[in-house]
Amino acid sequence: MSTYRERPAAGLDCVWERTSDHPSSGRVVPDGRTDIIRYPDGGLFVAGPDTVGHVTELGPGRVVGVRFGPGVGPAALGVPAHVLRDQRVPLAELWDDLAALEDALAGADDPGAVLADAARHRLRAAPPDPLAGAIAASVTAAPVAGLADDLGLSTRQLHRRSLHAFGYGPKTLHRVLRFDRAVKLAWTGVPFAEIAHRTGYADQAHLSREVKDLAGVPLGQLIRP
C-alpha cells in the first residue's frame, strides 16, 4: 500500500510525505518549484525545477519533503535555479554542516516539520527575489516586453531574473505554471474542455499537446490513480 499527502507550511508551498510498504514508482512533472527530500535511508537531496516529466523509482519506507513556492527555493539553497534545472543534487553540496539537521531528523516524529523549519531559517537569512512573486503571478502568453515594462525591467533583466529564480525564461515559466494549474484542476475532476478554457489554452487539443510535451503522457493517464 502507498499513500501520499500534502499539508500547508507557512512560508513554503507545502510539506509532503509518501509512504509505502513495497517498492513503488511515480511520475514527477514540471511545476516551477524546488523540493528538499529526505529518503528512507536518511539521504537528503534537492530536486530542481523540471522541464519534462519523468518516472521515479522508490523503495519501501517513508519519503518526506518540503516544497518551495515558485521562485523561492534558490534563495534558501544558495544557488540560481537554472543550476538545479532537471537535477537531483545532494543537499550537502549546497548547505554546509548538515550534522545538526541530520540529528534532528533522525529523532523526529515529524521530520517534515524539521525540514520546514530549516528551510524557513535559510529564507530568513536570504529572502527570495522580491520580484519573483510578481513575475510568477503576471507571466502570461502576452509578449515578454510588455511584462518587462510592467515590472520596470528590460527584457534581458527579466530573462536573467527569471532564470535565477525559476530555472526557466518567462515563456517556459508560463508554459510550466499554466500546465501545473491545469493538472491541479484535472485532479479535482474538472472536465478537460473546461480546464483548457479556464487556464488559457486555445482549445482542448492544445491542452492535450502541452500536457503530452511536458508530462510525457496524456492528461487522463497522468491523473489515473
Rank of each mutant, 00 (worst) to 15 (best):
E6P: 03
G11P: 02
G11L: 11
D13L: 14
T19A: 15
T19D: 14
H22M: 12
S25V: 08
S25L: 11
R27A: 09
V29Y: 12
V29M: 09
R33T: 10
D35A: 13
I36V: 09
I36L: 09
L44N: 06
L44I: 00
T56S: 13
G61L: 03
G61P: 00
G61E: 06
R67V: 05
G71I: 03
G71S: 01
P74Q: 07
P74F: 03
L77R: 07
G78P: 07
V79P: 03
V79T: 08
H82K: 07
H82Q: 11
V83R: 13
R85A: 14
V89K: 05
P90W: 14
A92M: 13
W95T: 08
D96E: 09
D96I: 02
D97E: 14
L98T: 13
L98E: 12
A99S: 15
L101A: 07
D103A: 14
A106P: 15
A106V: 09
D109I: 07
P111L: 14
G112V: 07
V114H: 02
L115T: 00
A116Q: 02
D117K: 02
D117R: 00
R120A: 06
R120C: 07
H121C: 05
R122E: 04
R124L: 01
R124Y: 00
A126I: 01
P127F: 02
P127K: 01
D129A: 05
L131V: 11
L131Q: 12
A136R: 07
A141C: 09
A141V: 13
V144I: 14
V144D: 08
A148Y: 05
D149Q: 09
L153R: 02
S154G: 15
R156E: 15
L158T: 03
H159K: 07
S162R: 00
L163W: 10
L163V: 09
H164Q: 11
F166S: 10
P170D: 03
H174D: 07
H174K: 06
L177I: 13
R178M: 04
F179A: 01
A182T: 02
L185S: 01
L185G: 00
T188Q: 02
P191F: 02
H197T: 09
H197D: 10
G200K: 04
Y201E: 00
Y201N: 00
A202F: 10
A202D: 10
Q204D: 12
L207G: 04
L207I: 04
R209I: 06
K212D: 11
A215T: 10
V217G: 12
V217Y: 05
Q221D: 11
L222C: 08
I223S: 03
R224D: 15
P225L: 13
